[in-house]
Each structure stands twice: as C-alpha cells, then as structure tokens.
Design a binder for these strands. Structure first.
Lengths: 346, 346
DNA sequence: GCACTCATGAGGTACGTACCTCAAATCGGC
DNA sequence: GCCGATTTGAGGTACGTACCTCATGAGTGC
C-alpha cells in the first residue's frame, strides 16, 4: 500500500541472521532462558535494537498456550468509585478475552498497606503476567512491588501512583491538575468565605496531589478565600458524613466544600441534613450513584471524574504494550479529567 | 485460573465437528467463499452461534499475510479539528501496527459530498478492510457507502453520523447532549440578551444535532434569552470571522455566542477586533490551537471537546471488532464530551 | 443412466513465536 | 591437550486461522 507496508516487520529469524546466531539462541535471550554467554546475549540485543525488532504479540500469545493474564487489586469498602473500577474490569473482561487476555479484579481491604503487600506477594509469576494496584504510599507496598517485579510480574499503578518504586507504568489522571481545576471552579463560585476540604487519607498520593493543586490555585488566584485544614474521612461513607457535618456545623460562614476523596454518599447526607445544601458550593470527585444524585438535587455543583472504563481500558492496553516491548515504559496517553455539571451527566 | 480460563475457546475445528462438516466448509462459510449450499451454510452458522465461536483475530491476522487495513477519509480545509484528527491517526499508526493493523489518513475536500463519494468508490476492497468517514448527509455519500459495503468494505462514521445508511458503526459524541450542555452553560452565564449561533453547515448532522439540543434547553430553561437565527461559516476561518463580526456588530445587546462548528480562529479574531471580547460569553467546540488561545485570552469561556485521540482509538478498536465478529454493530462505548475552561486545559 | 456441474472432504503449507530435544561445538581449568 | 561443563545449533511440533489443491461425493438435466 505504501513504503511502510512493503517493508516487512523484522522477525526472530531476521534477528538470528543479523546477530549471526541460531534461532534457539535468540529465543533464549528474548525469553530470558538460561545458558547464553553475556557476550552472545549482547550480540542478539544489538541485532534486536538495530532491526527495531518487536515481538509479534499475536503470534506470541498464539504460541504460548496461555493468555496474557492481568489482575487488578482493587480496594474494597464502601468506596463507590472502587466498585465501579471493579465493574469496569468485569465489563472489559469479555472483549479482552478476544485479544487473548485474561483480566480479573480482586477486592482487598482498603487503606491497608499490609493487605495489599500480601496480595501482591501471593501472586504466582507462572499464573500472572501483570498486576495493577491502587497504591498507597507505604513501605510494605513499595517492597512488595519490588519483589513482584523481581519475580517477573509487571506491576502498574492505577488512580494513585507510586513513583520511585519498581512499578512499570501509572494509569490515571493528573491529580495536581484536578485539584487546580477544583480550586478554579470553587474560586469562581465563591466570592469569599471559608473553604472546607475533606480527604480520604494523606497516605494516598492522589489525595495529597489534589490538595496541593487546590491550595496552590486558591492561594494564588483567590486570596479572599480561606482554606480550612483538611480532615480525613478515610473514603468511608459514615466517617465522611461525620467529618462533613462537623465542618458545616462548625463554620456558619462555610462557602465551599471540596471532597477530594470518596464517601460522597456521606457528604450528600450531611449537606441535606444541614439544610444548607445549595448554599454551599460543593466540588467532589468521581461520577458515581451518590455524586449523580448530589448533582441532580443541587447538593453538589461539580464532579471531577476519571472515567473508570477508560482507565481500565488504558491499563489493559498498557499491559499489552509491556508484554510486547519488555522494555521501557510505554507512553500511555494521559486519562482526561471529566467535568460534570447537572446538565452534562452521561 | 478459574472456570472461564479452563474452558477452551471454541476453534474452527470445534465448529466443523459440531456442524458435522469439514474444516474446508467451515472456512468457506466463515470467509464468504463460494461453493456452499445454503442449507450447509446454515448448519455451520448454527454451530457458530451455539458454540459462541469467535474467530481468533490474532491467529487470523497471522494467517493472512496482510494486516487489517483501515483508511480514514478526513475533510481538509482550514478546519483545525480535522487536522488534529489526521494527526491522531498518524500517532496511532505506530501502536496499531503492533496489533497488525495498517491505518492511514487521507484528506479530501471538505463539505464536498461528491469528493467523499469518489474517494469511497476509489477504494479497492482487496486493499482496504474498512473505511472511516466524516459524513455529510447527502445522497451521493449514502449511495457510495452502500456501494462500498456491497464490495465488502466496512464503513464507519466518525464525528458526524449517517443513520439509515450501510455504515456499520458510529464513533463520536452525543451531539444533542453537547448542544444541551452549551445551552446550560450559556444560560447560567447570561441572565438575558441575545444569543448568536454560528454553524458550519446544516448538511452536517452533528451540527444540526447540536443546534437542536441547544435550542431545546434554552427554550425550556432560559426563556429570557433570545436565540438568533444560525449563520453558516462553513468551518472556514475567514468566513467564520465575517459571520461572527457581522453578528457582533449587528447586535449591541449580544450576550452570548455559540459556535457549534469550526473556524474558531476567525471567531476569536472577530471578538478581539470588536473590543467586546470578555463581554460576550462564548462557547465553542474542539480544543485546538485557536480555542486554546481563546480560552487563555478570555475571548472564549468554555470549549466543548471530543478527544480526537480517543475517537481514533475507538474507531480502530471498532474496526477490529468488526473484522472479528463480522456481524452486528459492536457496542462501542460512547465518546465523552470534554468541558474545558481556562483552568483545566490539558 | 450418462455426462456434467457443483458441493464437500481430506490434507497440505504458511504465518511468527514458544518451547522442546538432542547433538555438536566451545569453553575453562589443569 | 584432555576432561567435564557449559553454550550453541539444528530441527521439530504446536498454537488457530487462511488459503490452496485435488479427489470424491452428490446432485442436475437430458
């Protein structure tokens, strides 16, 4: 069709020829099998680089009897967004199967670093090619990621990143930008007054980043607003309700509320109970049943959303890319931050 | 790993056994080769349905010497969004190649039904599995889609749909919802006054749908606003500038402006020249260089966006699904409408 | 019931990779 | 320069589908 089409993709045979070794040796190097001298391995790697060889995933998955396996370790609890992530995994399982991928979601205790580490440690590298975690930034998690990577399991982070670890890729939104957007909306909505902030946990990097972006824009562009110290609702409905109720009751001049974590059913309940819903400008995260209800009733003004289906799709695509390239981080396109008002609910 | 994993996918061999025919016959039926009695073909199809057989795309593409080919026929002209679609195709060409797909973008004259029809007619079914068009709703286009489908080329529509035609799938946003969202934003921004509307062409279904949604919400929720008759800028910079300038000059009480087509560089130029930028609330479509500039300068308040990369990715995925299933429309997930203010530019 | 066409079966090769076996070559140490 | 261990080569089969040939089956018209 054109010059690109004419030029055949390089195959393992080409690599063998270019490196001056046999097919078996190329295979040993590519699949990390033992019994190859470093000097020979280097010859092969040089040929791979020179030819721009990339393993043909279709053929590779066809030849292995087994599909590419990918497990999502998703926090449990009353966090509706995590629920929707798990549902998205289930939805994508069917089409993924057509692409020779087996994807599965497992729920683990939320905000429990040791439970996440244990779940990672429990993965057998013979069964799983890749694991996707919603990371909290804690030492046991870092160490478990390291161990999994060493066993040959590619670890990716979803929603909340773990930079500096052995994770191969992060899939999620720019949380600093999300916080900044929340601030710029709240700032336009509220001429003056106090702004309350509710987080899930400061151990979650995504929450810390949102707070950082939020504070930065408010401080710079809206000096008339005063940000209260953030309180933690641990992403649970009831705890978030209590924190929100306390904020509302304790500050009669509360102009805005930013819940950068989950537990939005509790937030809406507290707003409704206070009879000040509609008088306080509220920005929350993730389009779920409670935030939809809040938007419709007017209790919530804006919801910032990271499309769970899109994230799961991106994670699955990234896993394929990892399996294909073997090497460096595939450049994933960033997930968009969705902004939802009552009128553009999907 | 679990019961799904254990249960092998059905193969052509299984289908042959279940239908009580040979492999060759199954192959003839699946690939539409001649020489099969209708009764036999039906037996095979029944077996396919019963076993839930789906052709293994990896193996299929491996066996055909040729990659799956997909051509995007994208309007040319000064329309920046179309430009970004073409760029997105080029970007996706590389990863698509790893999935054994050849994708290519061709530019054709904009708003020229005959040119589009000719381009479709010029596609050889031996070279192209699938074509993606940005359709205008005109008879020559409908007929050409019909002919292409008859030749065995799967046609999909992008951005603007062509219902009732032989197109297999539409990839794009819900344009009625986009128009409604524009109205609900303009409505909140403007207490009263006249609202101007600029369209590209009323032959484009997406533009008609946006206008429909826009008018419906304004009429229902914001009766204080008066919508002027829409003018056509034909998605060209200069023509849009003239139309916008005329609207602004002709209506000193113009409160809002909705450009539901392209040509935004002209819109911004007209606003700047009028010295009323900032005094008129402006909603436009598609995040491109001119709309970004407009957001930053304050000339444009909100941009509604359909992520071109996401659309191209969805189109490519849909093409795979079509090639795989052969049958009915793959249920594509709808493309999200992005809302961008100055502060959440990505 | 003959010649003929058309439908079907049987079997092969190919795609690019994974994984296996077995023999042969090469290496290091002494 | 010999031994034993390690490294390498050669070649095979398999995955699931596409596409090919050739032979044989069934069906048709006359």
């Amino acid at each position: 069709m054109n010059e690109i089409e004419v030029r055949r993709r390089a195959t393992v045979h080409d690599v063998a020829r270019a490196a001056g070794v046999s097919l078996a040796t190329v295979d040993r190097v590519l699949n990390g099998r033992p019994g190859v001298r470093p000097a020979t391995a280097q010859k092969v790697e040089a040929a791979v680089a020179e030819l721009g060889f990339h393993r043909d995933l279709s053929a590779s998955l066809l030849a292995r009897a087994r599909d590419l396996t990918l497990v999502f370790l998703i926090p449990g609890g009353s966090n509706e967004f995590m629920e929707s992530l798990a549902e998205a995994v289930a939805r994508r399982a069917v089409p993924a199967r057509a692409e020779r991928m087996h994807v599965e979601a497992r729920r683990i205790p939320a905000l429990d670093p040791q439970a996440l580490a244990d779940a990672l440690d429990g993965l057998d590298a013979r069964d799983w090619d890749c694991a996707v975690i919603v990371a909290s930034e804690d030492e046991p998690v870092m160490a478990a990621v390291e161990r999994a990577a060493r066993r040959g399991i590619g670890v990716m982070t979803l929603v909340s990143d773990l930079p500096g670890s052995a994770r191969r890729q992060f899939v999620g939104i720019d949380n600093v930008a999300a916080g900044r957007t929340a601030a710029s909306l709240i700032g336009r909505f509220c001429p003056k007054g106090k702004i309350g902030v509710i987080a899930g946990s400061m151990h979650l990097r995504d929450h810390r980043e949102r707070l950082e972006g939020f504070r930065a824009v408010l401080a710079k562009d809206f000096p008339g607003l005063m940000v209260l110290a953030p309180v933690e609702g641990h992403d649970e409905t009831e705890e978030t309700r209590e924190r929100a109720a306390a904020l509302i009751a304790g500050h009669p001049d509360l102009a805005g509320l930013y819940n950068l974590g989950a537990g939005n059913a509790g937030l809406v309940a507290a707003l409704d109970a206070s009879h000040r819903a509609g008088g306080i400008r509220v920005v929350a995260h993730e389009l779920t049943a409670p935030t939809r209800a809040g938007l419709k009733s007017g209790a919530i003004d804006v919801v910032l959303d990271q499309n769970p289906d899109g994230e799961i799709r991106a994670a699955i695509a990234a896993a394929r890319a990892l399996a294909l390239g073997g090497a460096g981080p595939a450049d994933a396109e960033p997930i968009e931050i969705g902004i939802f008002l009552r009128d553009n609910l999907r």
